[in-house]
Amino acid sequence: MTAGLVRPDAGDVRVGGVSLFARHDAVTAQLGAVLEGSRNLYWRLTVRENLEYWGAMRRLSMRGARRRADELLELVGLTDRARNTVQTLSRGMQQKVALCQALMHRPHVLLLDEPTLGLDLESGEGIKRVVRQLAQEGTAVLLTTHQLDVAQELSDRVAMIRKGRLVLEGATADVLARYSQPVLTVMAARPWPADVAVRLAGLPAVVTGADTLSVDLADDRGSTLYEVLERLNPHPLLKIERHQADLAQVFQEVMGEGLRDAAATPAAALSAVPVREGGMAP
C-alpha cells in the first residue's frame, strides 16, 4: 500500500507532503522498493541489463543508468557478476541486485519487504550493511519483516501492525526500555550454597535456579545490589545483567494484550515495521 500497489479504502500515503494517489508518477519517482522473494528482476537478463532496464524505466538516461549501475554493483560487491544472467546467481546475490534496481534512481524513500529472509549469513549481513549506509546518507528506509532480530538491529523507529491496525509505534530504544523490567539476574560460577535463601532474607531477591537468582529493583534506592552481593560474598559469581527486552518479547507482550483485548478474535499475525528516518521531507 505504501508503494501504491494496493489502494486503501481510506487514508493517504504522502511523501514529502505529496499524495501518492493524487500524483502517482511524481511520488513513485521518489520511491524504490524491493518486494519479498525473487520478484524484482528479469531472470533471463544479465545483472547489468536488468539495472540499465530499470534505470531507464525510472527516467534515467542510458548513459546515466550505466554509470549508476557501476556504482551500485561496486557498493554491493557484484561488479564481477555484471555479465551473469540473474538466474545463475545465488539467492543472496539476486537480493543484492534487487536492492540495486530499487536504488537506480536514488530514491528518497526505500521500501524493503523481508530483505534478508532466506539469505545466508554473509548475504544477510551484506544487505544490512548497505541498508545502514543508505540510512546514514539520508535515505528513509521503511522495512517490513517478521525477523524481529533484524528489525531490532536496523531500526531507529519501530511499529507493529495487527489486523491492519497500528498497535505499537515509537523509537526502538524507547519501546525496548518500556518493555524491559527493573530486574537483575545474578549468575553464580557454581551452585548456590544450601542457606542462600536464608542469607537473602529481607531483601527483594529470589532464587530462580541452582545457580541463578533475580533481584527486583522496583523500589531500589541504589543500594539493593550491593546488599545482595554482600550477603552472597564470598560465593564466586559469573555474571550480573539487567533485564533488557528484545523485540521478540515486545511482540509476545503486544500479542498477549491483543488476545486479552479481543477474546473472540483469533490470533492475528503481527509484522514489525522498523523505520529508519532519513532524508524524507516532513
Binding site: 500497489l5 518486494l35 525510472r58 527516467r59
Partner: peptide
C-alpha cells in the same frame, strides 16, 4: 508489481 511501480 515492479513494472507498476515505475513513474510512468
Amino acid at each position: 508489481e515492479q513494472v507498476m511501480l515505475v513513474p510512468w
